[in-house]
């Protein structure tokens, strides 16, 4: 079996938002929609303060609450674990967005442009299908599939790896198959301390956050 997961190494992340911008551009998301983003959090009180950058987005949960609530079956889950949205089925009720504890889902009701008018680059990629429906990170499934079709290895070859991971200048983001013990993500999880966000909600999230080397 294959089970894709992402790793965000919080020790390395610098909050540069390169992944945010790369995702926005590669996926042509409209202004304000950030399938991938990095949060900037402060912990503690002066002078004992820390600041942490947390990449986040759809966690492609094992038990996706978004999929459970979706009244249309637009939200689905592939055999490899990627949670999908069928834009043709979705009615844009936003229920999934409320079921998601990760604030990972977006909906826009009109086609929007960065400058108000469509740039050539935006005009070339207007996708009416994504208006009025839920959208979110796809783990770049199209890219992944195209890469796999040419024999590339997700998480190893850029052609089969999500653009946020490819773009990460700090080397904080990793991707791969958890069911492959030799994949980069499996090796990293085996050798480092990690946590997952909101595990207690029973979602089974698939973004793992590294915070220390293994003990």
């Amino acid at each position: 079996m294959t089970r894709y997961a992402m790793i965000a190494d919080l020790r390395r992340c610098v909050g540069c938002q390169t992944c945010t911008a790369a995702c926005k551009e590669a996926n042509a998301t409209p202004p304000g929609v950030q399938w991938r983003r990095v949060l900037d959090i402060e912990v503690g009180e002066y002078p004992a303060v820390r600041r942490v950058f947390i990449p986040t987005g759809c966690q492609h949960c094992d038990q996706p609450p978004c999929m459970e609530v979706c009244p249309t079956r637009a939200t689905g889950k592939r055999a490899d674990g990627i949670v999908t949205i069928d834009y043709e089925l979705c009615i844009g009720c936003s229920y999934c967005a409320l079921a998601c504890p990760y604030d990972a889902r977006f909906k826009v009701d009109t086609v929007e442009f960065a400058y108000g008018v469509a740039l050539d680059s935006e005009q070339a990629r207007i996708d009416e299908k994504r208006v009025g429906v839920a959208t979110k990170c796809t783990f770049c499934a199209d890219r992944l599939d195209a890469g796999l079709a040419t024999g590339k290895v997700p998480g190893v070859d850029p052609e089969a790896t999500p653009v946020c991971v490819n773009s990460c200048i700090a080397g904080a983001l990793h991707f791969g198959d958890l069911d492959d013990p030799e994949s980069p993500v499996s090796l990293l999880l085996a050798s480092n301390e990690w946590f997952r966000m909101h595990e207690e909600l029973g979602t089974g999230p698939n973004i793992y956050y590294l915070w220390d080397k293994g003990r």
Binding site: C16, Q17, T18, T20, A21, A22, K24, E25, A114, Y115, V117, L119, D120, S121, E122, N166, S167, C168, I169
Partner: peptide, 21 residues
């Protein structure tokens, strides 16, 4: 040294090119 990865600013070059202003 960063394996051919540009920083976040480079991703603005598309909008920079087609900026209607």
């Amino acid at each position: 040294p960063a394996d051919g990865r540009p920083c976040v600013r480079a991703y603005g070059l598309v909008q920079k090119t087609y900026n209607p202003h």
